[in-house]
Write a protein that binds this DNA or RNA. Structure first.
Lengths: 203, 203
DNA sequence: GAATTTAGCAAACGATCGTTCGTAATCTAT
DNA sequence: ATAGATTACGAACGATCGTTTGCTAAATTC
């Protein structure tokens, strides 16, 4: 078969490719992602796959972008409507934990894996990973500051420290779930996150 | 040149290969490790490289084993002589942080990277990674229990919870250093580790 | 309805992957 | 000194890598 798809349908094809790429890269890594593998999975030719992106690196970037979109939808969107402050910060933590448990990415947190995979290689993929983390960090720290300003957290609270700990705990939870299948990890992570924020675990 | 090395020297060759493999895999991952690349770096033939291991998987296992040995030497050996308990637990944390800062692995913590890379693929490499983490976890938890027994920590202290948090913070520190070059991360990690243990940061 | 653009395929490109084979050089053991 | 193991090499294996090139057939534009 040859190109019997309309321009709109071609966009769909591109989305199908990216959707599959996210799944594959989630377990095999962005570098382990392969055009031939993708073509086989989708019953397409290699040229048909790469044609939508031009280059493997741009395919990786598109895949990363989609993963960031999914993360945003899973973790940020559910809490976006809450007012900035402690309540939303706690909701973020719970959504974060739920996301890591959800199995949306079969190979575990995509961004975490990508950050480890590309932390030593320069290039646009690494740059995008960094930008993604910085954006997420800014969102979390904003709520910490709002909670401090509202008197919900002690004035001495350091937003950067809270972010550091929450992010570390999320990564640690991801490892515990993916590598060890530790079923107690989510509750441990929640407890530690509450403590990192400076709020009783009874919350 | 052809094989003009004695049996003893051949062991040296093997060690040289593994030493180089640790460096390469530290940045490119155990899967990104390539026999041809290794042969080029060492001015050897591919057959000469793989001949010492038989299989790439066994080369990966030897590389992983060496990385575990290095980690043990860097983090455990300096504190092994201390008596079990709170003092050694705190020393472990400091040695751990120092190790992550040391740049022994140019691409960051080898075990962390390997755990992310292989957390979705069955096989002996993944099994060895898990065993390495379990062994390290047992060592840390042992000191937590000893500290509790000695009355240095509250009786309600949960060793598994402490391990979970310390490990997460170490991974988070590794990411902050490698991906973001965050120079404040080590002091943040140290502070959080002290708090996870349940000891004042002034210690 | 004719001309142009586009989606996707089949095939091939050189490069590299992990692995195997035969062979020469060296070491070890008799 | 001679025989047998090793060590490592060069060369080749089939497979797969990312990418490029023509081509066909459908969709779009004029």
């Amino acid at each position: 078969m040859s190109p019997r798809r309309s321009a709109a349908a071609a966009l769909e094809t591109r989305e199908e490719i990216v959707a599959r790429a996210v799944v594959v890269a989630s377990t095999d890594g962005l570098e382990g992602l392969t055009i031939g593998r993708l073509a086989g999975d989708l019953s397409m030719s290699k040229a048909g796959v790469i044609g939508h992106f031009g280059t493997k690196e741009r395919l990786q970037l598109a895949t990363l972008e989609e993963a960031i979109t999914i993360f945003t939808r899973e973790v940020w969107a559910p809490v976006a409507d809450l007012p900035a402050g402690l309540e939303r910060l706690l909701a973020i933590c719970d959504a974060w934990i739920a996301h890591l448990q959800s199995g949306v990415f079969p190979g575990g947190c995509f961004l975490t894996a990508a950050s480890m995979e590309f932390d030593g290689r320069a290039g646009p993929v690494r740059d995008r990973v960094i930008a993604g983390f910085e954006q997420w960090r800014a969102a979390v720290e904003r709520d910490v500051r709002a909670a401090v300003k509202a008197g919900q957290l002690p004035a001495a609270t350091d937003p950067a420290q809270v972010w550091f700990e929450l992010n570390a705990l999320a990564i640690g939870l991801n490892q515990a779930l993916q590598l060890l299948g530790d079923e107690e990890a989510p509750v441990r992570a929640r407890r530690a996150m509450r403590r990192a924020i400076g709020v009783g675990a009874a919350e």
